[in-house]
């Protein structure tokens, strides 16, 4: 995954065509930007300008949650964002019809395997964002593939996209930390009973979820069950296209004396094989 993933003109000016609060502190923004939407793949992301001008200075990275269509052609993107600071608040305040600068599509997409596999999407919190587009892409490829969406959140207010993904014919299971919806516990506990040959896992969420996912996948491997598993990391990204080296994650590297190096998650990822990351060195930012 070390080939530079981006090509051509990344900078675009879109128009905000929708911006509504769909859950507590969670906003769904629609941006019309046909030239970007045409080439967007599931698991890729965009960098959004929070406001016109330079304050806040840096753009914010968001998974492409879904695509907007017109006459069957992709003409825009949807992003799902949780308000956590001044930048995301500024984005929530964006008005319909406003121009919005963006870069994208960026990064390596998920590998979606083949339609004969059981694909399991594992999401934690706002890490749910990429999976509407993933589910849509899978359904376009095969109406019959078995697809499961396991989604966790700290409580029922922070569980996203269950209806949208269920409508696409996927099995949906929910876990919450406080038991207010679905399984009382972690989303990775829902994964364990599903593991069998032919399962492929793709995940997005906070680092503690990834760490427990890595344990589950490794335990399966030790039982002789090799589950292909990719994770999409959520590091904060000042640039998103490989210029700043700020968004690094520790990855396994036998060529280095300590067995790891830092990889720019924007261009070497954001999608990594779960076994490529040194989870013991990964900080818990969430």
């Amino acid at each position: 995954m070390d080939a530079y993933p981006n090509e051509g003109q990344l900078d675009h000016e879109g128009v905000v065509t929708g911006n509504v609060e769909v859950a507590r502190d969670c906003w769904r923004m629609e941006i019309r930007c046909p030239e970007l939407a045409r080439t967007a793949k599931s698991g890729q992301f965009v960098m959004l300008r929070c406001r016109q001008g330079m304050d806040p200075l840096l753009s914010r990275a968001f998974s492409i949650c879904d695509l907007l269509y017109e006459d069957g052609e992709p003409v825009g993107i949807v992003v799902l964002q949780l308000i956590i600071g001044v930048g995301t608040q500024a984005l929530a305040d964006r008005q319909l019809g406003e121009p919005i600068g963006l870069l994208g599509p960026l990064g390596h997409p998920y590998g979606l395997g083949t339609p004969d596999e059981h694909l399991v999407m594992v999401a934690g919190g706002i890490g749910a964002a990429p999976f509407a587009l993933v589910a849509r892409a899978l359904r376009e490829r095969s109406p019959t593939q078995r697809v499961t969406y396991l989604v966790g959140g700290r409580n029922a207010d922070y569980v996203y996209l269950t209806d949208e993904i269920a409508e696409l014919g996927c099995d949906v299971q929910v876990a919450t930390d406080d038991g207010s919806r679905g399984h009382h516990g972690y989303v990775t506990q829902l994964l364990e009973p599903l593991l069998e040959p032919g399962v492929r896992v793709i995940a997005c969420g906070p680092n503690p979820m990834f760490k427990s996912l890595a344990v589950v996948i490794r335990a399966a491997k030790e039982r002789g069950l090799q589950i292909p598993c990719q994770v999409s990391t959520e590091e904060s990204m000042p640039c998103g296209f490989g210029a700043c080296a700020g968004c690094v994650v520790p990855v396994v590297s036998n060529a280095h004396p300590d067995g790891f190096r830092f990889a720019k998650s924007c261009v070497e990822g954001p999608v990594f094989d779960v076994e490529a990351i040194r989870w013991d060195l990964m900080r818990s930012i969430h």
């Binding site: 590091e235 000042p238 280095h256 790891f260 900080r283």
Partner: peptide
């Protein structure tokens, strides 16, 4: 290899 993250922080 560079410094361990976090490596950046936005300011005003």
């Amino acid at each position: 290899l560079g410094n361990p993250p976090p490596r950046t922080f936005e300011t005003a």
